[in-house]
Design a protein around this nucleic acid. Structure first.
Lengths: 173, 173
DNA sequence: CACCAACGAATTGCGCGCAATCTATTTGCG
DNA sequence: CGCAAATAGATTGCGCGCAATTCGTTGGTG
């Protein structure tokens, strides 16, 4: 389980002099927060892995299945918009899901540019294991309902902030 | 900027009957929280990219440099413990940093199993850009000091919970 | 000393994640 | 209609992240 990285303060800032402690603390914290998120994402991935291995899915594949379980026959683009992934990631992933017999991919006859992704019987059947996986994840977080709510709200605020600064802020130097 | 995933409730659970709404809500939330973290990590990565591109670093490489700036001459294993990465990830990464002239890698004469990673002059010089990058990231989060603090505390609680359930909880089916 | 387990790093293989490029289809406009 | 722009996917290349394996070194034991 690696280490307790929480308290380490190795994320420098030696340049700043005294008198502006709050700003320093904020830059330090944003730096550490980023690592915490990065690390938490990996921990989630490792937590999911043994659960999803039994279903023959990776976590990103599982996300795609979640999207399809909630709305079948979507295009690659529509799936990508829900998960914030592009065709460079989705095309090979979907091919693997197709090779596994979980989905089928076919061009839309009305518009040959679109590829519609449809669940097979096996793909639909996998949904039965959804509850088991989700409950195991809930348990692994060690959080209660309030903790989950509070955290998700704040992470989503962060996401909104980061997303807002992606399009516009591209000031070159 | 993808989409606003916050409110979508596509993460199923049709199986559960009525009367246990709280438990359902918790499993749903843990599922959504995981996606939020996954998505936030990617957004952070995209936010860092244009900043780090100018330094010729990727975000994981930047993390390694942060570790070395705070303590030079570490072994691969020590770096891996701080970042929760293994040699399969670090060895090629460090080779790229070495090829870029930022670090040098050499076996410890006292113990030939260890590889010590040392900053070069160019590697040390890169530290000058640290403040600029960190301030840009702080700005991009859109959070203030209190928001950063609160979020980091909660993410670290989550990390602790997930880490605690990684070693022990491996109940096979 | 010989041997074997432990250790640290390197290597291999695979699946993302994303930028950049390419192809095919569709749409729009004269 | 004819042709350019837009659109949707596919492809390529590269760098993680991690499991599994291999290799060389070290330490402990008989």
């Amino acid at each position: 389980m690696a280490q307790d990285h929480q308290d380490t303060t190795h994320q420098g800032m030696e340049k700043a002099g005294p008198g502006k402690g709050a700003a320093d603390q904020a830059t330090l914290l944003s730096n550490q927060l980023c690592f915490s998120i990065y690390s938490a994402a990996h921990l989630f991935n490792r937590t999911y892995k043994p659960l999803l291995d039994r279903l023959g899915l990776t976590y990103p594949q599982y996300l795609v299945m979640l999207v399809l379980w909630s709305g079948d026959g979507l295009t690659v683009k529509a799936i990508g918009e829900q998960l914030d992934l592009d065709s460079g990631t989705l095309t090979p992933l979907l091919k693997r899901l197709e090779a596994a017999g979980l989905v089928s991919r076919q061009r839309d006859p009305q518009n040959e540019r679109l590829v519609r992704v449809t669940l097979t019987g096996a793909g639909r059947a996998l949904q039965d294991h959804l509850g088991t996986v989700q409950q195991a994840i809930l348990c692994a977080t060690g959080l209660n309902l309030d903790g989950l709510k509070a955290l998700k709200v704040q992470v989503d605020e962060l996401r909104a902030g980061l997303a807002a600064n992606l399009g516009p802020a591209d000031q070159d130097g």
